[in-house]
Nucleic acid binder design. Structure first.
Lengths: 192, 192
DNA sequence: GTATTCCATTAAGGTATCTTAAGAAGGCTA
DNA sequence: TAGCCTTCTTAAGATACCTTAATGGAATAC
């Protein structure tokens, strides 16, 4: 279970065996049933989370109670309400399992200890966050310049593995359209 | 000129006087006239950039040649085509001065040297990128869940200092609407 | 100081997407 | 097996936003 985590880190930075051991000891495993919450809006968010198995969604609710999915997470992805984690304010997002999932999480205090003991952990999270930032920038540009149909087509090519684990109405939420509209987009695509 | 840069770093991490000197030596100043490019699509992007004075925009062009502004940068902000910088692929964005500006920039090789010599520089960019990621997440959620009018009102409250330095059609581009539509939004606001 | 470009505004008609409502298929659960 | 969720689909009418075109004032260049 920890192999995926350590491999994920070693893809980006070198760490020794001792450091690997220390890292593994700092994370705790959590198992989630389908629809179970890992985090709910209003709660404190004191852990950084890595998905080792399954599929979860990060979303918020607007004033009308409508759900907006900001991110999906599958095996090998990091997911969190980063704002709440960093500021120690109550969460504004929910993290909920879409299917049965296993998560490895580390408490902020433990992670900060790792940052002080292992220079490469600062670098790992710097690079990881930079990559996430770049991906989010690209999504922002696409949302600004492309039609919903094009965004849908891009998603199913780029994230085929995610698309196969989630119901269509959640993908609609992520793309920023209604389920009805996504359905009609798919109907049009079948046409041409 | 370097005071703003060093202050920006010391807001987040501690650095010694010697380290501060080393950092200052690693950055080079660039002055830009109005409309001058700091980076153009297709060029290599080998520097990380800090705006010490003025106002610039980061944007791309879509297939139809329409401009989409991803980010503004004013005094005290970092700005870059981060994807091109990290991957060393040709830039896909433009960075252009909106008014006369001064930029401090550091070559990737110099910055990587700093990362190896000064642990806190890794931490500084980790935190800086995390904060940028959080801000971009919030923008993404707002784009998904709010009307153009609400996004406009939010912008002029949150970024009053930027709004006063840019023409309205650029703000429209940033918000993802046409200048005509933003104009009609403002007309409506005057009404109620 | 005049010409020219840039920028904001207005308005009419068009398109993408939403809202609401309804029905049907599939899969759990009792 | 029956019944209930969950999910996807369809369609009609509503709305937000876009496209195009035209105007006038302000800024800039010559």
């Amino acid at each position: 279970m920890y192999d995926l985590l350590i491999g994920n880190i070693r893809e980006l930075v070198p760490i020794t065996e001792d450091e690997s051991k220390l890292i593994q000891k700092s994370f705790e495993p959590i198992t989630l049933n389908r629809k179970q919450y890992l985090l709910q809006s209003g709660e404190p968010c004191n852990h950084m989370r890595f998905i080792s198995h399954g599929c979860v969604k990060l979303y918020n609710l607007d004033e009308l109670g409508a759900e907006h999915i900001l991110q999906f997470g599958i095996s090998g992805w990091w997911i969190n309400d980063l704002y709440a984690y960093l500021t120690q304010k109550p969460a504004t997002f929910f993290i909920q399992a879409i299917s049965e999932s296993t998560v490895l999480q580390i408490h902020r205090d433990r992670l900060n200890e790792l940052f002080d003991k292992i220079h490469m952990m600062d670098r790992f999270f710097r690079i990881k966050t930079q990559n996430g930032y770049v991906a989010l920038q690209e999504r922002t540009i696409n949302n600004m310049s492309q039609s919903a149909e094009q965004r849908y087509l891009d998603f199913i090519v780029r994230y085929r593995d995610i698309e196969q684990q989630i119901p269509q109405y959640m993908l609609a939420s992520y793309l920023g359209v209604t389920p009805e509209h996504l359905s009609s987009i798919r109907k049009n695509i079948r046409g041409h």
